[in-house]
Design a protein around this nucleic acid. Sequence first.
DNA 1: TCCACTTGTCTAGATCAATATACAATTTGG
DNA 2: CCAAATTGTATATTGATCTAGACAAGTGGA
Lengths: 248, 248
Amino acid sequence: MKRAGLQRGVGVALWRQVADGIRQGIASGLADENGRLPPENQLAERFGVNRHTVRAAISALAHEGVLQSEQGRGTYVRRQKRLIYPIGERTRFSAGLGGQARETRSEMTGHAHEPASEPITSALGLEPGEMLIRIENLGKADGVPVSRSTAWFSAERFPGIAEAYGRTGSITEALALCGVEDYRRASTRVEARHADETDCQELKLAPGAIVIITHALNTDLDGRPIQYSMTRFAADRVELVIESPRAA
Amino acid sequence: MKRAGLQRGVGVALWRQVADGIRQGIASGLADENGRLPPENQLAERFGVNRHTVRAAISALAHEGVLQSEQGRGTYVRRQKRLIYPIGERTRFSAGLGGQARETRSEMTGHAHEPASEPITSALGLEPGEMLIRIENLGKADGVPVSRSTAWFSAERFPGIAEAYGRTGSITEALALCGVEDYRRASTRVEARHADETDCQELKLAPGAIVIITHALNTDLDGRPIQYSMTRFAADRVELVIESPRAA
DNA sequence: TCCACTTGTCTAGATCAATATACAATTTGG
DNA sequence: CCAAATTGTATATTGATCTAGACAAGTGGA
């Protein structure tokens, strides 16, 4: 199996394509049982590029913490397992990742009041111009950022939500303080694109990385919209799993 | 708003980052009401690059069919609306896209018998080594390829599935011929990565493009696994919508 | 018609990306 | 210790990418 599919002169450097290829390959048994990668010369031949190009790729992955090279010995995989983020009626950040990481945390990085505009207005069933509270936060697992989410609430219905969230560190608890006993995920839209500058900074991504974006609507148990949120996941650290609940 | 976030020397050419930036910008009102983009000089300043770099980006987008430049007049957006692909208990290709395109088609591009191996074995509840039938197909809307999917069935339970699918052009009908009245989507896993060579060819994507990948398990109404499938969607042509069905 | 604005083309130089070749440094096993 | 295998470093060459500046060519309005 030679010449994995690289493409030249298309704006993506070969070493980056090779890096992506190696990262994918690791998931499908490129490394041996000790986590050792094939030698640079073999990789070069397999990808159909020069050894130095492979070295550039490995160097980038080493910089990301995926690989570690040792002179005379070889190049080894450090770890590599994506978190699984379940999406269903009862999607919640910390609960969802529970067990997969020693510690999950969701920290508020900012909040603001702002008038409602289009995508959110109709989702939450508000009039254009009604005030919203926007909350930005960053989800981490074992200290590594995995998701960046923005949530909008009606300012009229949940005036103290930002403060409550800041104090409790949990949307669920903050909503409980605002009189919402429970809520459910009504719909989720999923898209994917390249990370923008803010994504790269906050999620500590390499440029060119991919983010999976979910747009979600949460309602209370009566079906009234409560929260609209947009979450950007680092695609190389997370995958989403959607469970269709059995008709209960 | 100057200097949108580009990053240099990271393996992704500036012109490609600018192209991605423009594509995103179009979705958030970069073009005016007539679909006209700001002039190249303004774009160059906004992105903090040379006008020639912007021109390379525009040229790439024009080649993709997103933009069209006219000397002396300006650069115009051709259109840009992603199909919405719903995911739920009753996910089916053609039904899901119904109404959004004049014509949707799903054509078989190949099929094979092969022994079961790990991801599929456990999903379908089979023993390693049992024979599977693998079916490859390509989903198109109005002639434009939007998805590429691979489906696996137990060869023992559905010996004639490939032939039935080839004749009917529909998984649902092919399963009906094999005695499965109805089926439901039990779970869906979503990830995203850069398109590989085959993706680029079959889905007619530019290299560096993104594919959203779903891994799905369909079961019959008794909950017995029927089909495991992996589908690659062109992320710039499709977005997924997940509906949590109300407990029925 | 004239002028401002916009896209298209050309040239030249600087930096980055990729190849080719050679050799040094380190580890491992015989 | 020696030899093979492997990663690390150096140098040179070629092509792609990015910048800079100037001007041509088409459009549309005053």
